[in-house]
Write a protein that binds this DNA or RNA. Sequence first.
DNA 1: TGTTAGCACTCGTCATTAGTGAGTGCTAAA
DNA 2: TTTAGCACTCACTAATGACGAGTGCTAACA
Lengths: 340, 340
Amino acid sequence: MLTERQLLILQVIIDDFILTAQPVGSRSIAKKEAVTFSSATIRNEMADLEEMGFIEKTHSSSGRVPSEKGYRFYVDHLLSPFRLSDQEIITIRDAFNDKMMEFERVVQKSAGILSDLTNYTSIILGPEVFETKLKQLQIVPLSEQSAIAILVTDTGHVEHRAFNVPVEMKGADLEKMVNILNSRLQGVPLVKLHEKLYSEIHDLLRKHTDQHEEAFSYLRAALVDDHPTKLYIGGKTNILMQPEFRDLDKVRSLYSTIEQENAMADLLRSGQEGIQVKIGQENPFDAMQNCSLITASYHLGNDQVGTIALLGPTRMEYNRMFSLMNVLSKHMTNTFRGWY
Amino acid sequence: MLTERQLLILQVIIDDFILTAQPVGSRSIAKKEAVTFSSATIRNEMADLEEMGFIEKTHSSSGRVPSEKGYRFYVDHLLSPFRLSDQEIITIRDAFNDKMMEFERVVQKSAGILSDLTNYTSIILGPEVFETKLKQLQIVPLSEQSAIAILVTDTGHVEHRAFNVPVEMKGADLEKMVNILNSRLQGVPLVKLHEKLYSEIHDLLRKHTDQHEEAFSYLRAALVDDHPTKLYIGGKTNILMQPEFRDLDKVRSLYSTIEQENAMADLLRSGQEGIQVKIGQENPFDAMQNCSLITASYHLGNDQVGTIALLGPTRMEYNRMFSLMNVLSKHMTNTFRGWY
DNA sequence: TGTTAGCACTCGTCATTAGTGAGTGCTAAA
DNA sequence: TTTAGCACTCACTAATGACGAGTGCTAACA
């Protein structure tokens, strides 16, 4: 168990290192207001803290740097609540003022705010699409042979895709087809579209319209597109600001890790309710060895959950980040409340 | 005027430097097959070339490096035609195989291909929206109080925006309103939407529907959104691969330059027909001092013109880039042919 | 018994120095 | 006109030493 004094020293070391990114020496600790004992005493305590694995030396006569275990302890036990500045609170609140936003816009904006306020990289994972349902299907003819299929979901998400209209098909046929599709598909979860199209719609269309085959296959291609688990990333280049990423190779490998959408999505999904931190090696990817990932969940009124995340060096302003993500995820949850 | 021999030497120097990014010495030039004279002779010629400003030394006893004037001459007079690999040609062709694509998708894809094949950063400027016309307006109600306005243009561009539905407004009112808007606004260029909405539609709506005021203002906000000159950027992080951008500060300032959409759009717009190169200082931005920007125009069937561009270090594989952009812009023009 | 002053020691950083090699310019001979 | 030869330049590297921030240990002190 750690003594009060050791806790204090550990706290000072981590706070200081987070601020300066420089190893912290006993003398500089002794100078702090809150510290009443001498540097020699601190050295002794630091030796103990090191033995316990909370801090490390970068070389035999350097100051101390928090270890991952140290950060873990700090996050779990030493986190002092951080008071956000009025400016920050206003920025966030104003962003959600505009009540009428479709899902994408809310998320996009949130990612932007988060990365701007933190100078880290923000990653937001939309909720599972399992429950997102088709609201309406529209078709807008562009020319004789082409049209745009537009798909609107109940979250206000709009997807569109151009497709070919078979030469023999009339506008009226197209309209009839759309009507059939709408009457049958409204309220169907997106992930079930494909199945439903085959099981019911195909036969139905055959009965009602000519030239359905070709048009059907085009439309199907347009509708049953990949609905990829979408990641919204903000402030990708913020990584370059951090002194720990002076090494371009590190940056490159980190970028290529982030860009693997599926892997990142899995990682974010794995977080539980509330705010979580993965520190350094706790992350599954090699490129994220020196990074921490803070995740927070937000809700959609029904039981769906999405995740917002912040990626930065292990030397992160954890307390400010916690406050920010707390506020932001609450705002998001509020905004989505009642959408279902 | 340059002699044959000087031309040869200049060509070898630039070709070599483009490949290796290292200053080129007289000895290494003398070793080339095509070069039959000694390194001493080459040194004399190089001194002349330097005096004329085509090449430079990085320090008093270094090999030579092409100057901007050198690159300019190289691009204007020494460019050997580059034969693209089959793989490259296939990659490009296949990307345009899928005949049915809306404008955005074509451009997005082109930017992706260009940056992937070149390892530089690609920037594509869409054509002026002046001529893009409204094809259809659709409104999909989401709930009692909210709906999505969807705007489709004749290029297949889809824009959408959620908006509030006034409490007193019925679905039928909304439908009536949309019908009026559609009948009056179809074929209207996007840039004139705003004007038209005020001059004609406002009065018209007043006559036909109740509760028009509030709905009108919401709709207007949704429709007459900013239609920013959109830049499509591909391979932003490719910049990090280039040895000339080992300096993070340079990268940062370059990024912030690229992100100024309006300035970049103006720059791209200023290019003329065909393929153009701006080398180093010829670019207006400080951050692009060490960069070259290759621009090529593509056409839209009518007289509209868009621009594709490649941003890399002045040490660029100009000949390959020329071939690539030539092929790509032709494919784009072909794809858009007949859209109008 | 816990705390602290003092001191020897470690090691990264920075500036200096010298050696090496790639490259140049100049001169004189072919 | 071309080229061999040579002196010279300068970036790069490794070695060296001074400096200082920091440590661990010991002995004295409260």
